[in-house]
Simulated scan of single mutants.
Amino acid sequence: MKSVGLFKSLPIEDPESLVERDISTPIPGDADLLVRVEAIAVNPADYRVRRRKADDGAFAVLGWDVAGELVATGSAGAGVSVGDAVSYAGDLPRPGGTSEFHAVNAAIVGHRPTLLTPAQAAALPLTALTAWEALFDRFGLSPDASSERRTLLIVGGAGGVGSIAIQLARLVPGLTVIATASRPLSRAWCERLGAHGRRYERIETGRSRLP
């Protein structure tokens, strides 16, 4: 199958920094699923793995946020069936999904949102998990909480995690969601996602502050 990866870390401008290579189609283990890849997302994990790749002659495939179609399951089975549209954030110690097919542990795979295209669904897993864990696991917020008046500041609201965090935070009763954003396009995006406040003032030092 076709795949894209690297043999060693090179500047991204180098034509050999990412190369196409034919590799064997993975065989899913007992707890795995085999997914026909339709879209992958590029995120900081890919950047860090690429920059740290040792010059050891081994070919490494990047891409851990994946959307695709389930084509085979291991013997353990799973909560999804062959033919289902799925998406997931993969497992860094295993090969990435920038390939025609990808083997992944069934425990981290879920049904793809039906209203999203494969490209849109692939952009969600890592950002959505990060935002969810920060808000509900670390901060202890809950959509079922009382309507106690509180305020949440999201720095960089127009970024990947910030965009998801705004939408999730708006599910919490009584929570005022303020997002920072500097460009008009970014400010409009945060407002569209539901942020209550986003206005910046510029001070003489060139830094920004919330009014």
Rank of each mutant, 00 (worst) to 15 (best):
K2F: 08
I12F: 11
P15H: 02
E16H: 07
L18Y: 14
D22V: 13
D22I: 07
D22N: 09
I23Y: 00
T25Q: 15
P28T: 07
G29F: 07
I40H: 00
P44M: 06
A45T: 14
R51D: 14
D55R: 04
A60N: 08
G63D: 01
D65W: 05
V66N: 00
E69P: 00
A76I: 02
G77P: 07
V82H: 04
V82R: 04
S87D: 07
A89S: 14
G90E: 06
D91P: 03
P93W: 08
R94T: 11
G96P: 10
G97P: 12
G97L: 05
I108M: 07
H111V: 12
L116C: 01
A119S: 13
A123S: 15
L124F: 07
L124C: 10
P125M: 05
L126I: 12
L126N: 02
T127G: 03
A128K: 01
A134N: 08
L135T: 06
D137E: 15
L141F: 15
D144R: 11
E148T: 15
E148W: 06
I154F: 12
G160M: 07
A165H: 09
V172A: 12
G174P: 08
L175H: 04
A179Y: 13
T180N: 09
T180E: 09
P184I: 03
S186A: 13
R187L: 11
A188W: 06
L193S: 05
G194R: 09
G194P: 12
R199Q: 10
Y200V: 14
E201F: 05
S208P: 00
R209W: 06
P211K: 07
